[in-house]
Design a protein around this nucleic acid. Structure first.
Lengths: 207, 207
DNA sequence: TGGTGTGAAGTGGTTCACAGCA
DNA sequence: TGCTGTGAACCACTTCACACCA
């Protein structure tokens, strides 16, 4: 019955809704209409309703959605997130920054460890996780059953490190290296290319 | 004649192609086929050809595309990027990291200055740009005709700061604050939400 | 022959519009 | 009455398939 494939983008938006709901919940708001939540999330009301429809029926006609019920349902869907151990590879400027970034923690993620080609030459002040050598990567992943990795190595090492990660069992990679990774189908890669985002933005600027 | 609207995604991919081409160029490769370039960029050959088609005819049938010609053409389209002055607002962990990140420079961007609510309390070691108070934001933007900004303030200040930016003339915002910004239509916002990317990835992990 | 350029067909996702229920 | 739930219409982008040309 349930075999309507859920669009990736809908799943992606779930995280946005989730965050908006948390804010509503903090304010003590108990019910929210599709139009209110949609505008907070920056989408159209119909889109929101359709997205929710993929996961069940949560609303009351004429009233709206109960905030807590939605939150619980979303946690069910995205909930495994918090449980996933994550590692970070490449402790350069960007890598170290991400390690220090409280944003991950705030959303319930814990970075277990970081890896670098030459860990001894790295300034680890205020880096709150152990830093190992790349050599230990495969063993660590297998031992701790790591399935997700944040990749911040220079572009030229991206593919090589990725092969190691995938080989050892990683299934999801958040790739900050400015390169396109070749991976098997069962591995999901999300690319975040900061310079490219800027370059792209500039296209839309007048004059 | 030329009034076929170019899809946003096509423009976005231009940056990817551009980077792949630069790498080919460095290797001294002079011509490339659509299938070779496409696979390097992680897209289908037909997609690449269609994308190029939006901007002109660059290829030779039976041969492929001249690398340098494509590069020049792309620079024409995306070229203004390098000339755009950029500022960064919010010098927390993430903000400072981005300031130190060489990736922007490498792609030709120069961050003019950074701003923070309380600049005096911030560790500016190895931050290579002047750090000002938020109070000076509007004046600075107007004076230097800044059109692009990188936003790294905490979520709760995102909208407030954005209003200031837009009011002062900013037209493109790269938003790292985990919040949805309301902006007029002429302002383009690209959101990069690191925790959300992780959360989303975890959805696709087995077991 | 080999690879581009492109109309036409296909696909996935968004938006509409309205039936249905508190 | 007000707002959800959802099939149907729509739209944007992707992929196909083949004419065309060095």
């Amino acid at each position: 019955m349930d075999k309507v494939e859920i669009p990736r983008k809908a799943i992606y938006r779930l995280s946005i809704y989730s965050r908006c709901l948390r804010r509503l919940s903090e304010k003590g708001i108990e019910t929210v209409s599709s139009s209110a939540l949609a505008s907070a999330a920056g989408v159209k009301p119909a889109q929101l309703r359709k997205d929710l429809g993929y996961f069940g029926q949560f609303g009351t006609r004429g009233l709206g959605y109960p905030v807590e019920v939605l939150l619980t349902a979303f946690r069910e869907v995205l909930g495994r997130a918090a449980l996933q151990p994550v590692i970070l590879v490449g402790a350069g400027n960007l890598g170290r920054a991400l390690l220090r970034y409280e944003g991950f923690l705030k959303e319930g993620f814990e970075v277990l460890a970081a890896f670098d080609k030459s860990p001894e030459s790295i300034d680890t002040t205020r880096v709150p996780v152990p830093l190992h050598s790349d050599d230990e990567l495969a063993n660590f992943i297998k031992k701790h059953r790591v399935r997700m990795a944040i990749l911040c190595v220079p572009a030229e090492f991206g593919q090589e490190v990725t092969n190691t990660l995938v080989e050892a069992g990683v299934q999801g990679i958040l790739n900050f290296s400015p390169t396109i990774l070749q991976t098997p189908d069962h591995v999901v890669v999300t690319r975040v290319d900061l310079a490219m985002e800027l370059e792209n933005l500039s296209f839309f600027i007048d004059q």
